[in-house]
Design a protein around this nucleic acid. Structure first.
Length: 973
RNA sequence: GCCUCUGUGGCGGAACUGGUAUACGCGUACGCUUUAGGAGCGUAUCCCGUAAGGGUUGGAGGUUCAAAUCCUCCCAGAGGCACCA
């Protein structure tokens, strides 16, 4: 020890981080050999979409939490693969590029560089030899392949549909991307448009998506959300004859209900304005009522309803159709509608139920027609009040109320017993539902049906920045009724050998509001030949939804081609690495003139993933991400995986064995967003305090699944703790003899042994931190390590820079230890173990300290952070002949050390503190020996001896004594 | 409206299956150290009370020897779904 201001009194994060990033890359620390791995563990974090100003601290929070878990698994002996990539293809990136007026291709190059630089800095164990960027042609080639496979397997179709149109993003949106009738991305109100679009038949997997979800090891929050989104409902279709006032039948009308039990209480029927029957019953042409395709009875009905009524009805229908969805909902409880003049006949009791048209009934759900049971449905009740329709009670709720239903509170929907319902009287609701279904089916009036809320996935986008949909349309073939799929004449997939359909660089990439994709203005793109007849044909000019890109990326990571070809590849972050096939290539090569690189690539790659590697590494063992993707990305990924499985391409049907939903970082009480101006950029903090301190701080803010609150002052506190650990470790390292490097096997050789207190505390910490890591309670794990450091500092009793002999009692230092004080109280192997449990949280600092410990590097020169000693063996000085053993290799990195074991014997105290209660209130604590702490008599005896206890027992009779061995004794008086 | 989750000091948060509420950290105050700044070190810090003692986990009840934890109702906040029949 010297008093000189040597480097070790301050942790220099910047220099040390840089040094280890290089060193780790040099030895390929974080690139597991996927082919030979014995215990594969695929630890995946959702890849970010580089849309805006860069990675923010919320991203870093998410990545760090996932990374710590991966590092822990690695120390437990798993071969952990932790990849990273960018989801930079699609509307979010394009919108940002449009906003700042930069071409999306150029923007992608820039954001990739920025993001990868930032992602390097956060200290995650990403395997930088295997990245995936969704906009790279070598990736989206396979996204397009997935599309063609969907088509080939009949899961993809084209249909004219009422779609969600975002007037601001100028594109259609999937149902899942519409939140509160607004665009998920930009927040603008969504309009409805009739457009021809591509769909994936995700509904074909509705039941499987639901059934599988029950057995997934996923955050329940997410499973609940998925279940709700799938929205399975078991009900019944009931068909009613539609009759005139005089009872002449004119048509049939089918209604959907989940509550047929209340059918005796039905007093009206309502259909949506868009219902086909509306058009069948009334036409616009004449101002007189027209009844289409019905019997003579119907013809006679003509005269009974005058033209004015018809006009009124048609007006209402027109008006409803023009309303936006939000208008319809906004009118809310105030029901509107119009009577048709017709009736439905309820077969149960022969009642004629007036038939209305109202826009509270949704055309898109069920059959677009419902049975009005105002006594037992709140909307029906509101409608009945509005139109003065009869209200009948058919259920007696548990409250026993049997009076006529006249107030909304009386409308009871869930439970009770049937009444006024013929054969159902006295039967509980649940039972009655089944009974009624059977009855209706028997009578031939009804048919059991299962419906789902889940809709087919609208996959096409009229935008530029996405994978062109790899389809070709041939008019000639269409006329001849020829095509790849019978149901879709004229349509052909682009042959595999011609994928990718490269997205050309065009300058007029801005979306128009005509619903036509930018590529549609480029003949050189869309003109092609028909794979069927060889004649002239056109390419599809829409691109696919971003969520298709991310629906299969986890399959790609382990198989990224360059790794399968062998040879180590080195990341060059400064050059903003792009793949063999990148934008430069695309820019140079026009679409119609594919470069030789592309053809070469195609020849050598015929499948998107390596089957052996995939079998070994998938499904993903642990997937971490935000809960906001509960029904978007996670549902689509599951669907695509199921489809790939059913086509025989993979042997599992769920992509993620475990899914963990992390919380969000908030600042000043609000979620971070640029609109609120509270976004924190991690770069500045990393520069100021180091990545380790920021990692620790973020994880310390709260439980990982609940998120945390970012505060600058608390960040400084964590930076102080990092310094404290550094000083403590350096002081201990310097107190070991130079000839006394870390020898894990035989601690008796050490000149300094830990005091019993320190040793005990360490083993407790090992246990607790390990348990907390498994549960991802990072905040309490860090607290445990802080407590441990506090104990060590207390034990040392002397300040780091004033090596006064500390007052020690002899028994604190294990026999054989050096008790000259003021130097350190941890044995070198104990220090090593402490560094190991801290390593997942603070990977840089712990590596530096661990290597110093191994090498016994204590003198000024070696202690200099930039000394770089561990990487070489050419240092001068007295230690030169032993230095070869200190060369840094993968296997002696702290991150490849086994997670330390704790000694259960050290967790047990010699004495125990027992809480003494009188009538459940704590009155005292007594300390007894370990052995007697579990013996009732002994504990009771010492408890009664306590003054404070005696005081409270005085003059009272003890009725009962509760004894919890080793913990507590309670006198009941 | 329905579903899920969350309410603990000035603040972020601890408390595994009911068993010593407020660990750990931030902040604050005082002191030591430092040329200064910063940093470091020490002490204190839920509330009332000089003390003995009493009170306290959003609110009100309940179960129990014992409740932050279990049950019922209510209040507040976050997220998801939503005229879904």
């Amino acid at each position: 020890m010297t008093d000189s201001p040597i480097a070790y009194d301050k942790y220099d994060g910047k220099a040390i981080e840089e040094k280890w990033r290089k060193a780790w890359e040099e030895v390929a620390l974080d690139s597991p050999d996927l082919a030979s791995a014995k215990r594969p563990y695929y630890n995946l974090m959702m890849f970010p979409y580089p849309s805006a100003e860069g990675l923010h601290v919320g991203n870093m929070y998410a990545f760090t939490g996932s990374d710590i878990y991966g590092r822990f698994k690695r120390m437990q002996g798993y071969d952990v693969f932790e990849p990273i990539g960018l989801d930079g293809f699609g509307i979010h990136s394009e919108n940002f590029a449009l906003k700042i007026g930069r071409h999306p291709m150029d923007h992608a190059v820039i954001t990739q560089k920025n993001y990868y630089n930032q992602l390097h800095a956060i200290g995650a164990m990403f395997d930088w030899t295997r990245t995936v960027e969704t906009y790279n042609p070598d990736y989206y080639r396979w996204t397009q392949w997935v599309f063609t496979q969907m088509f080939k397997h009949g899961l993809c179709y084209r249909g004219k549909a009422e779609v969600n149109w975002c007037p601001s993003c100028k594109t259609v949106l999937a149902d899942e991307q519409v939140i509160d009738n607004s665009c998920e991305r930009c927040g603008k109100m969504v309009e409805k448009r009739q457009l021809e679009q591509w769909f994936f038949k995700i509904t074909a997997y509705a039941e499987k998506l639901l059934q599988n979800s029950f057995s997934l090891d996923w955050a329940t929050k997410v499973k609940v959300a998925q279940k709700a989104w799938i929205g399975k409902k078991e009900g019944i279709h009931i068909t009613y004859p539609v009759v005139t006032k005089d009872g002449a039948k004119v048509a049939d009308l089918t209604c959907f209900t989940t509550r047929p039990d209340t059918n005796f209480g039905a007093t009206f029927v309502v259909m949506a304005p868009e219902h086909p029957l509306v058009g069948e019953l009334f036409t616009v042409k004449s101002q007189t009522l027209q009844v289409n395709s019905v019997s003579n009875d119907g013809e006679r009905a003509l005269s009974q309803i005058n033209a004015a009524t018809t006009a009124q009805i048609l007006d209402y229908v027109q008006a409803s159709k023009q309303k936006t969805p939000q208008d319809r909902v906004a009118e809310g409880r105030k029901k509107t509608g119009v009577f048709t003049g017709y009736y439905c006949v309820n077969g149960l009791n022969g009642k004629k139920l007036p038939l209305y048209i109202s826009d509270f009934v949704l055309a898109g759900f069920g059959t677009g027609a419902v049975i009005g049971v105002p006594g037992h449905d709140k909307r029906d009740f509101a409608f009945a009040i509005q139109f003065d329709i009869d209200i009948q009670r058919v259920v007696i709720a548990p409250d026993g109320d049997t009076s006529p239903i006249s107030r909304p509170e009386q409308v009871q929907e869930e439970e009770g017993v049937m009444v006024n319902s013929g054969f159902l009287n006295g039967i509980p609701v649940q039972e009655a539902i089944e009974k009624m279904k059977d009855y209706l089916v028997n009578k031939g009036w009804g048919k059991r049906v299962t419906t789902y809320h889940l809709r087919d996935w609208l996959i096409s986008r009229q935008r530029y920045w996405g994978p062109p949909i790899p389809m070709i349309y041939c008019q000639a073939c269409a006329k001849a009724d020829k095509g790849e799929q019978k149901a879709m004449p004229g349509w052909f997939t682009v042959p595999d050998s011609e994928l990718p359909v490269v997205l050309p660089r065009i300058d007029d990439y801005k979306p128009g509001d005509d619903g036509v994709a930018p590529l549609a203005k480029h003949k050189e793109f869309y003109e092609t030949t028909c794979p069927g007849c060889g004649g002239k044909a056109v390419r599809e000019t829409d691109v696919s939804d971003t969520f298709l890109d991310s629906s299969w990326y986890f399959l790609r990571y382990p198989s990224v081609a360059r790794n399968l070809e062998g040879g180590r590849w080195k990341m060059d972050i400064d050059s903003g690495r792009l793949d063999a096939l990148n934008f430069q290539d695309v820019k140079e090569s026009k679409v119609q003139d594919p470069s030789s690189k592309i053809s070469n690539f195609k020849k050598s790659h015929s499948f998107p993933w390596n089957p052996d590697i995939t079998k070994k590494w998938l499904p993903v063992h642990m997937y971490t991400g935000g809960a906001e993707h509960s029904v978007l990305h996670l549902m689509y990924s599951r669907f695509v995986t199921m489809a790939l499985h059913d086509w025989g391409y993979i042997d599992f049907d769920e992509p993620f064995s475990s899914f963990y939903a992390h919380g969000l970082v908030i600042k000043d009480g609000a979620k971070m967003s640029k609109s609120k101006g509270n976004v924190v950029n991690p770069d500045d903090y990393i520069k100021l305090y180091g990545a380790d301190a920021l990692r620790l701080y973020l994880m310390f803010t709260g439980p990982y699944d609940q998120g945390g609150d970012f505060r600058d002052s608390a960040m400084e506190g964590m930076a102080r703790w990092v310094q404290k650990v550094w000083r403590l470790a350096m002081k201990n390292i310097s107190s070991y003899d130079a000839s006394d490097p870390l020898v894990p096997s035989d601690s008796s050789q050490h000149s300094i042994l830990s005091s019993a207190t320190v040793k005990k505390a360490l083993h407790r910490a090992i246990k607790k931190v390990g348990e907390d890591l498994e549960r991802r309670r990072y905040n309490t794990a860090i607290a445990t390590m802080m407590e441990f450091v506090n104990i060590v500092v207390d034990e040392e009793g002397a300040r780091p820079q004033t090596p006064e002999p500390r007052p020690t009692s002899q028994d604190e230092v294990v026999a054989g230890g050096r008790s000259d004080g003021g130097r350190g109280v941890m044995g070198s192997d104990d220090l090593g173990n402490f560094l190991k449990i801290l390593a997942p949280f603070a990977p840089y600092m712990t590596e530096e300290l661990y290597q110093r410990l191994r090498a016994g590097m204590t003198d000024d020169q070696l202690a200099s952070p930039t000394g770089g000693l561990p990487l070489t063996n050419e240092k001068k000085g007295s230690k030169s002949e032993t230095l070869s053993q200190y060369t840094f290799t993968k296997s002696n990195s702290i991150h490849f050390q086994p997670w330390p074991a704790y000694d259960p014997k050290l967790l047990v105290d010699d004495s125990a503190e027992i809480a003494v209660q009188v009538n459940g209130k704590l009155r005292a604590t007594v300390v007894v020996s370990r052995q007697s702490s579990v013996v009732r008599e002994e504990v009771e005896k010492s408890a009664r001896q306590s003054d404070r206890v005696a005081k409270h027992l005085e003059g009272k009779t003890v009725i009962k004594v509760i004894f919890v061995p080793g913990k507590l004794i309670n006198f009941v008086v």
